[in-house]
Design a protein around this nucleic acid. Structure first.
Length: 228
DNA sequence: ACCCAGGGTCATA
DNA sequence: TATGACCATGGG
């Protein structure tokens, strides 16, 4: 028997106690954070970080200067991030969108739902990237759903894992009582945790969620009701 | 040599 | 709606 009830709130506490503050995108500018969100798509963060460093050295880490580059030149600078040709096209489209919408000031004036919808219309910005930008660059209360979140939460029986993105996002934003800074931290914690745990192994050794995985496996779990 | 990473798009059924 | 190919570099 677990000595605690698995909820989205209690899991957050467990992960935070275990891993501590993750400090994702702590003090960079909004635009640079957004660049990172696109550059890290399907790529290890260390590689995306290299690409950002290259952009800085090239003086192309601001929207006005990046927009002046040719797509080919941009692709060369971000090569370490992988998929550099497609990402160059995406960053060009994203930067044009950024400038067309009044930069961080104009964008920050938009309501969260409007900002999200506008982002989703940009080529190369899908749901997860849009939410990452809305959360990490604009500090809005949004829960980012990724493959790790699906794994970790399904592992403890709070979700099945194959729900639609918007469904999971709404569920988490409803059940988790944290504000934007906690949503920020939670997503990072899940990624950090998911890199090691809740993968394919049947038993989580040294898992901060220990007890739950086994418990959920042996006994029939109660219906997944994720209430805060 | 093999697997995967802080995804998204497009073609196909 | 739902898979699968594709994008490409770097680290374990």
């Amino acid at each position: 028997m677990p000595s605690w009830i698995p909820t989205f709130n209690s899991i957050y506490e467990r992960l935070f106690d275990r891993y501590g503050p993750q400090a994702w995108w702590p003090a960079q500018g909004r635009f640079e954070i957004a660049l990172g969100a696109v550059l890290t798509q399907g790529t290890a963060w260390t590689n995306a970080a290299k690409a950002i460093r290259c952009l800085k050295e090239a003086g192309a880490d601001r929207p006005e200067t990046l927009a002046r580059l040719s797509e080919a030149a941009l692709a060369r600078h971000i090569r370490p991030a992988g998929f550099h040709n497609v990402k160059a096209a995406r960053l060009m489209a994203f930067t044009a969108w950024w400038l067309d919408n009044g930069g961080h000031r104009g964008l920050n004036a938009l309501p969260t739902a409007t900002l999200r919808a506008s982002l989703l219309a940009v080529n190369g910005v899908g749901r997860e990237t849009a939410d990452a930008i809305v959360l990490y660059a604009f500090q809005r209360r949004v829960f980012v759903i990724d493959a790790y979140a699906r794994r970790v939460f399904s592992r403890v029986g709070l979700v099945s894992g194959d729900e639609k993105y918007e469904h999971l996002r709404a569920k988490l934003e409803d059940a988790f009582t944290g504000e934007a800074p906690e949503c920020n931290e939670y997503h990072a914690l899940i990624v950090e945790h998911g890199k090691v745990h809740c993968r394919s192994r049947p038993l989580c050794e040294g898992c901060p969620l220990a007890g739950l995985c086994e418990f959920r496996k042996r006994t029939a779990p109660s219906p997944a009701g994720g209430r805060g």
